[in-house]
């Protein structure tokens, strides 16, 4: 009997082995899940290629093959390395050094084998890699009344994605300031503006749209837009109350 027990696995031995395995693997799993959660909050200056799905969808779709990187004719795309502040193996570009050149045939999207870069993206102007934000108004030369204008001039969608809005220069009192103003409906987030900003540290930065954009409450309406839609005021015009002059004054 003893011999038999030694040769065959006893129930006790089986339970011990199984719980050993489960504990070890559970421990590993916990560590991995923690690391994976950490890697969700990565450097916002690492931008995804054109057509990338929303971030969490992108991370489940991208198989980290690097075909987009090899397809990019300008070599701007990189793959995240182990323990870099971006999920390992996923593609990104840094606008300040290597902005997207916005190829019309979007070779990176064509190369993607899984649809992590959305095959439905036909026109590169519809890409939304991020949104340029003039984040430092204190150092932007245009905000001080100088005519730098570089971000405006390099924008591939000049006068649409970035316009110069004229305001009064309150510092001098008799000049204008030309404020570079980004429009989120046309900005692709290519990063040309960020690359070319003449400051030591750029004043205009391309950020993921989830960070850059605000959102109205679902209930909120712009009065003047609703008025336009309705073709007139939604409330009655001001009531003309009857004039009640005191009797003594009559």
């Amino acid at each position: 009997m003893v011999k038999l027990l030694q040769r065959k696995k006893t129930r006790r031995q089986f339970l011990v082995d199984a719980s050993k395995g489960a504990c070890g693997v559970g421990f590993m799993g916990l560590g991995l899940a923690g690391y994976s959660n950490q890697s969700q909050s990565f450097n916002p200056q690492m931008l995804r290629p054109p057509g990338a799905l929303a971030e969490s969808d992108f991370q489940s779709a991208c198989v980290r093959c690097g075909l987009c990187v090899e397809a990019c004719p300008y070599d701007i795309l990189k793959l995240g390395r182990l323990f870099q502040p971006i999920p390992t193996g996923t593609p990104y570009f840094i606008a300040r050094t290597d902005p997207c050149e916005m190829c019309e045939d979007i070779p990176c999207k064509v190369a993607c084998p899984t649809g992590a870069l959305d095959p439905a993206l036909e026109n590169i102007d519809d890409a939304r890699m991020g949104l340029a934000v003039l984040i430092d108004q204190e150092n932007c030369l245009n905000f001080q009344g100088l005519r730098c204008d570089v971000c405006y001039r390099v924008c591939p969608a000049i006068d649409k994605a970035i316009t110069l809005e004229v305001h009064r220069n309150t510092r001098t009192g008799h000049h204008a300031v030309f404020i570079p103003t980004v429009h989120s409906d046309t900005c692709t987030g290519c990063g040309k503006c960020e690359e070319s900003c003449v400051l030591e540290e750029t004043a205009i930065k391309v950020l993921p749209r989830t960070i850059a954009k605000g959102e109205l409450g679902a209930h909120y309406r712009w009065g003047w837009k609703e008025k336009e839609k309705a073709g007139g005021s939604l409330i009655d015009p001001v009531l003309d109350l009857p004039d009640r002059v005191p009797e003594v004054l009559k």
Binding site: L32, A33, Y35, S36, N37, S39, Q40, S56, Q59, S60, V63, R64, G66, V69, K78, L79, R81, L82, F83, Q84, P87, T88, G89
Partner: peptide, 24 residues
């Protein structure tokens, strides 16, 4: 987690990827 957790550390895919695209 909703993401490919293992691929964050998978050494099998990391080896070639590292050689072609940067090892870090």
């Amino acid at each position: 987690t909703g993401v490919m957790t293992w691929e964050l550390v998978n050494p099998v895919s990391a080896f070639h990827r590292g050689l072609f695209f940067g090892m870090g």
